[in-house]
Design a protein around this nucleic acid. Sequence first.
DNA 1: GAAATTATGAAGCCTTGGCTACAATTGCAA
DNA 2: TTGCAATTGTAGCCAAGGCTTCATAATTTC
Lengths: 153, 153
Amino acid sequence: MSDKNEPESDAPAEVERFSQARSAQSKALLEDYTELIDDLIREHGEARLIDIARRLGVAHPTAAKAVARLKREGLASSRPYRGVFLTEAGTAMAQRVRARHRVVVDLLVAVGVPHEAAEIDAEGIEHHVSETTLTAFELFLKGRKPRRSGGKA
Amino acid sequence: MSDKNEPESDAPAEVERFSQARSAQSKALLEDYTELIDDLIREHGEARLIDIARRLGVAHPTAAKAVARLKREGLASSRPYRGVFLTEAGTAMAQRVRARHRVVVDLLVAVGVPHEAAEIDAEGIEHHVSETTLTAFELFLKGRKPRRSGGKA
DNA sequence: GAAATTATGAAGCCTTGGCTACAATTGCAA
DNA sequence: TTGCAATTGTAGCCAAGGCTTCATAATTTC
């Protein structure tokens, strides 16, 4: 990087990184919710607001607001006093998020992070893992831990 | 139900993980600012508000608000119309953050992430890396890439 | 079928982290 | 010294994501 004192030319890349990190944070919430809703539907056949709130550790109006946002963004739908449902886009996002979460946890474990810490940290890390990085993780895991590859038990 | 403060059945590991990820996010801003202020002081001998704002890609009142928060938390000090300075605590944090950033980038590169992507993703990831995970990263790097020994980038 | 319970929804407040607009201070230069 | 541009501070607005409280709709139970 250039160490010059030029007010303009010394910033852009850095600014880019910061703002990217900031916007990733805004996507994180949507991702957590879609994944959780997908989870709940798998487990219980439906995703009730109260269950969503409970699992996320927030009050139910907070979850309701988030679901409203999911609907705005075309990721979910819901009918009053019925459950919350994911649209195709929402389901796709949930699956992507779940897959990525697994890869991140596996990667962390592969480099020696204790499983418990890996699970905790992955929750925060996963939202900042780009496609490029994710692909690199997958390649690394494939080469390093072939015992885990492909054949899901 | 009793009113005990027990970590009761209502707060399973999952909730813990989510709320931990959420609180990490609030620390991230402080960390970015302290590191940047430390950078600026090294580079220019002082950290002016306008430079902080420029480097972070935010408007100056946003930076001013953040600096006010740093002061509240005892990480920085400043006198009106003078620069911003770090307290001992702030400097310590900056150094910790910088070291961690390097480790995260190195780890990403070591598992095959292209350097550019590593830099970008690290900006978001680093704030979610616990001590445990950081230590694991360091150990991994030590064992895996001795060729990088001591090498300051 | 009415009451109790549970789930949702709606309103209103707080904090954070953005922003713009404008006021005040500094500092440099004419 | 004065004047003006740059810098900093202040005020006020916005959206997001928390919260509590209260109202309403659904469901369950008697």
